[in-house]
């Protein structure tokens, strides 16, 4: 692949990294491969103040490359135990980018159960820390498969994280630190900057049309008259992704066939 070409995975990593651009000194938590690589890319390319962990218990000076490594490859700068993680969350100095199974037009997400609650069609992880994250600090979401099963009509099957749904807010008032930022998918970048925090198309990945994105979404999207194309990763970012953050190329496994980032007209 030529240096100026990039894959869809690499495009998603750079689009995800953007969520932390203006955050300053907060804990960047990226769960699963693309978000984790994106957090590292954000720290190395434009927000060096970001804090991140080794995905276990230490804060590290530099992002830890994914894949097998020597323990010595980690350079700790501090301790982020489980208890301290919650202390950090309650203070709001964190921005998480996580991968829910479902998301709805309010930005409410689900990773607990699909289907009827008592005898679910699929029991997933459980709500984990989603409720606390969503009401305490900024959150963004990555959805590797943009379709109506992931971006659902109505509400998600079990609301694990709070969203812009006044009917569920205490006293009908927006929780003071509720702050949903972006949804990055394999087709587009969405945000919550529509009227009343409606989900809006922020940018389209190269070669993707807004009609296609709407057709793959279970709820209506706000569509500005002019929608930019998702910026390509820079040459420097591609080098960081390929040589520093993911030298073993694990990102090639995220999307079937590891497609290019610029989709050719079919």
């Amino acid at each position: 692949m030529a240096a100026h070409d990039f894959t869809l995975a690499e495009l998603c990593i750079s689009a995800c990294a953007e969520v932390w651009r203006d955050d300053g000194e907060v804990l960047a938590t990226g769960i699963t491969l693309i978000p984790r690589l994106a957090a590292g890319l954000a720290k190395l390319s434009f927000n060096p103040a970001l804090m991140m962990t080794d995905a276990e218990v230490y804060l590290v000076e530099e992002p830890v490359a994914v894949g097998p490594r020597a323990a010595a490859a980690i350079r700790p700068e501090g301790w982020m135990s489980y208890a301290r993680t919650f202390d950090n969350i309650y203070g709001g100095k964190r921005h998480a980018l996580v991968v829910p199974v479902q998301i709805d037009r309010f930005g409410q997400t689900n990773i607990s159960t699909i289907g009827e609650r008592g005898r679910p069609k699929a029991a997933l992880l459980g709500v984990r820390g989603y409720p606390g994250n969503s009401i305490n600090h900024p959150n963004s979401y990555f959805l590797p498969s943009h379709d109506p099963r992931a971006l659902v009509a109505g509400e998600v099957d079990f609301v694990c994280s709070v969203g812009y749904n006044p009917a569920r807010w205490p006293d009908g008032k927006q929780p003071p630190w509720l702050d949903l930022r972006r949804i990055v998918t394999n087709l587009a970048v969405l945000d919550f900057e529509g009227a009343g925090h409606a989900v809006r198309v922020r940018s389209l990945h190269p070669g993707v049309t807004v009609d296609e994105v709407q057709a793959a979404t279970g709820f209506p999207l706000e569509r500005p008259a002019e929608i930019p194309t998702t910026p390509a990763p820079t040459a420097e970012q591609l080098q960081l992704i390929r040589e520093t953050l993911d030298p073993r190329g694990l990102r090639a496994t995220v999307f079937k066939g590891d497609p290019p980032g610029v989709r050719s007209a079919s």
Binding site: F86, P120, A123
Partner: peptide, 20 residues
């Protein structure tokens, strides 16, 4: 998963921090 999907036990699901 199998037990949960079969409704084999009652569940009370909590956020991690809420459990704390």
């Amino acid at each position: 998963r199998a037990a949960r999907q079969a409704g084999a036990f009652e569940v009370r699901e909590l956020d991690e921090g809420l459990a704390q």
